[in-house]
Design a protein around this nucleic acid. Structure first.
Length: 311
RNA sequence: GGACGGGUGGGUGAGUGGCUAAAACCAGCAGACUGUAAAUCUGCCGCUCCUUGCGGGCUACGGAGGUUCGAAUCCUCCCCCGUCCA
């Protein structure tokens, strides 16, 4: 009965114009925007994470933004739960949900589901991390090799973060991660999904990223960071790892000059965009538009795709 | 004019006779990714040829010569850069 509920996903690298296209589509198709972005879920970190200011939302509701405090840990599993709820609620209201996706893992978690694996355990992670400090990354990978040979062969010995997660799953569930991953997972139910990918030419994208960084600074990014610090948000909390925030934090601490920070932020953002492109390239069933989302031609193409998808 | 120090691959920068197409890092490109994902990690990275191999050829350490079986590494001259002395 609800198989004809629709979901539009707009995906693409940072600065490709996802938000602009989403708002345009939402205005004309009675839609609401749902963010699929691991950084926008954090409150107070606004400018650098690219949240669309309320004044520029043209009355379109935006969801899954400002979900947690800076000190909290947010995960793909949590995103999936919240997003599923929000999507269902939007449809129940008779509106069209439009997802703007920059975080590939969250999108996959939502659409395809996650394995039935245990959530993270800070205590266990701490213990494993200490082992790495004392015995080295290779040692931990060796343990994984004994406990879950298959996962060990797929994870590089130097990738401590992933080695720890695999061990965590194995130790907490008693089963190898590889086995859990083979089990059936349930993805998003009852939606007809249309994926639109924005892929402007690389050089133009990089240029836009550079301009975007300076524009963010002009709109008060540095003051935002200053306020966060004054408010007492710990400088080592998770969101301070986000692109730009660590550099601006260092500028305010007198450890870096602004020009150097700008250079580094632009560079890091380009590298990030590249990683997103690598991830999205293999996302199945994407209708690619080789333009920025704010170009009229991109919107026209998106509407065409929507209409074609209707049938 | 003189005394030192230095000129290395896109950048920084090791290397003082063969193990060096030349460490390491950065940038760049490509890739991986199931609960930290704006994170984390991996590969490639002078040109070229093929039977794609711990394969062949060519070019390369400011320039030109020289010593040597062999030079980024030693010698000579020259050109630049930095510091100091006049």
């Amino acid at each position: 009965m609800n198989a004809h509920r629709r979901l539009v996903v707009i995906l693409g690298p940072t600065a490709s114009g996802k938000s602009a296209l989403a708002i345009t589509l939402a205005e004309r198709l009675n839609g609401e925007v749902v963010a699929c972005d691991s950084t926008q879920v954090y409150r107070c970190f606004d400018i650098g994470t690219g949240k669309v200011p309320a004044a520029e939302r043209r009355g379109i509701p935006h969801h899954l933004i400002d979900l947690v405090e800076p000190g909290e840990v947010f995960t793909a599993g949590e995103y999936r739960r919240r997003a599923t709820e929000v999507l269902n609620a939007i449809c129940a209201r008779g509106k069209l949900p439009i997802l703007t996706a920059g975080t590939g893992l969250y999108l996959r978690a939502l659409l395809e589901g996650l394995a039935d694996a245990p959530a993270r355990s800070e205590e266990l992670r701490e213990r494993l991390r200490q082992r790495v400090t004392r015995r080295g990354a290779e040692h931990l990978h060796g343990i994984l090799k004994r406990l879950d040979r298959e996962s060990a062969s797929r994870i590089a010995p130097g990738d401590t973060q992933k080695v720890i997660r695999a061990l965590e799953v194995r130790l907490l569930s008693g089963e190898p991660t590889s086995a859990l991953h083979r089990q059936e997972r349930t993805g998003l139910q009852g939606f007809q999904v249309l994926k639109i990918g924005l892929m402007p030419p690389r050089a133009a994208l990089y240029e836009r990223i550079e301009g975007r960084v300076t524009a963010m600074l002009e709109s008060g990014w540095l003051d935002e960071v200053k306020m966060l610090l004054n408010k007492g948000i710990v400088p080592t909390s998770k969101p301070f790892e986000f692109l730009g925030y660590s550099q601006l934090r260092d500028v305010l601490a007198g450890k870096m000059v602004l020009d150097e920070a700008i250079r580094q932020i632009q560079q890091a953002t380009r590298q990030y965009a590249k990683r997103q492109i690598t991830w999205f390239r293999k996302e199945p069933g994407v209708h690619w538009i080789e333009r920025f989302g704010d170009e009229p031609a991109a919107a026209a193409e998106a509407f065409r795709l929507m209409a074609a998808d209707e049938e």
